[in-house]
Simulated assay, not measured.
Amino acid sequence: MSLRPVLGALTGAVLVLAAPLASAPAANAVVSAPGGTEAVTVDPTGTLASDGTVTLSGTYRCSGNTGPAYVSSSVAQGDSTVRHGIGGSTAVCDGAEHAWRNTGRVGADALEHGTAQVEATVMELRPSGGLPLPHFHAARRQDVTLTAV
């Protein structure tokens, strides 16, 4: 059995459980660690295929991790309160800038081409008393344009 699906499921569960605990940043807001050494960016355009596959990308910088780290992303459109998780990728927190790219399928009619709100988060699972707890390195909420593939 591959470890990747298990880690992905664990990361998703932690993000779902932790989401209500943290207040979401405002539109086009950046949240990062003190000192500004950690950050995540979102490219101004993403793609939306006719089958509902969304691809988002950007860059991140983080450091000092003691557990596995990930870049997660989600997208919403219009006044909808529904956010669609768009994949997740592993992160390397070595202080250097790295590119991230997440792809996920939301359903053929869930989104349309045009403006959408994307949230990207760099999160680490830090061991704490034998239980991995989320530690957020950086987050960004930004408007993007979803274009056809």
Results as ranks from 00 to 15, higher is better:
Leu7His: 13
Leu7Thr: 12
Leu7Trp: 07
Leu7Tyr: 12
Gly8Val: 12
Gly8Ala: 13
Gly8Arg: 10
Gly8Glu: 13
Ala9Gln: 11
Ala9Val: 15
Leu10Asp: 12
Leu10Thr: 15
Thr11Ala: 12
Thr11Cys: 05
Thr11Val: 13
Gly12Ser: 12
Gly12Trp: 11
Gly12Thr: 12
Gly12Phe: 07
Ala13Gln: 15
Ala13Lys: 13
Ala13Cys: 09
Leu15Glu: 10
Val16Gln: 14
Leu17Glu: 10
Leu17Pro: 06
Ala18Gln: 13
Ala18Asn: 15
Ala18Ile: 02
Ala19Tyr: 03
Ala19Glu: 11
Leu21Lys: 10
Ala22Thr: 15
Ala22Ser: 15
Ser23Leu: 13
Ser23Trp: 11
Ser23Asn: 11
Ala24Arg: 06
Pro25Arg: 00
Ala26Phe: 00
Ala26Gln: 03
Ala26Tyr: 00
Ala27Gly: 08
Ala27Lys: 14
Asn28Cys: 02
Asn28Leu: 01
Asn28Gly: 07
Asn28Thr: 04
Ala29Trp: 04
Val30Phe: 01
Val31Thr: 11
Ala33Pro: 06
Pro34Gly: 02
Pro34Asp: 06
Gly35Leu: 07
Gly35Phe: 02
Gly36Glu: 07
Thr37His: 12
Thr37Phe: 11
Thr37Tyr: 08
Glu38Leu: 04
Glu38Asn: 07
Glu38Thr: 08
Ala39Lys: 06
Ala39Pro: 02
Ala39Ile: 09
Ala39Cys: 04
Val40Arg: 09
Val40Cys: 09
Thr41Asn: 03
Thr41Cys: 03
Thr41Glu: 01
Thr41Phe: 03
Thr41Ile: 04
Val42Lys: 09
Val42Leu: 05
Val42Asp: 00
Val42Ile: 14
Asp43Asn: 15
Asp43Tyr: 07
Pro44Met: 03
Pro44Cys: 03
Pro44Gln: 09
Thr45Tyr: 03
Thr45Val: 06
Gly46Ala: 10
Gly46Glu: 11
Thr47Leu: 06
Thr47Cys: 05
Leu48Gly: 13
Leu48Lys: 11
Ala49Asn: 14
Ala49Phe: 03
Ser50Phe: 05
Ser50Met: 06
Asp51Glu: 03
Asp51Pro: 01
Gly52Ser: 10
Thr53His: 12
Thr53Pro: 08
Thr53Ala: 09
Thr53Leu: 04
Thr53Gly: 06
Val54Gly: 09
Val54Trp: 05
Val54His: 08
Thr55Trp: 02
Thr55Gln: 11
Leu56Cys: 02
Leu56Lys: 10
Ser57Leu: 01
Thr59Asn: 07
Thr59Arg: 10
Thr59Asp: 08
Thr59Gln: 14
Tyr60Arg: 04
Cys62Phe: 01
Ser63Cys: 00
Ser63Gly: 09
Ser63Trp: 00
Ser63Ile: 00
Gly64Tyr: 00
Asn65His: 01
Asn65Phe: 01
Thr66Gly: 13
Thr66Asn: 12
Thr66His: 04
Gly67Ser: 07
Gly67Asp: 14
Pro68Ala: 09
Pro68Trp: 05
Ala69Gly: 15
Ala69Asn: 06
Tyr70Gln: 06
Tyr70Phe: 15
Tyr70Ser: 15
Val71His: 15
Val71Asn: 09
Val71Glu: 04
Val71Cys: 14
Ser72Leu: 03
Ser72Phe: 14
Ser72Lys: 11
Ser73Trp: 14
Ser73Phe: 08
Ser74Met: 04
Ser74Gly: 11
Ser74Phe: 00
Ser74Ala: 12
Ser74Cys: 01
Ser74Gln: 13
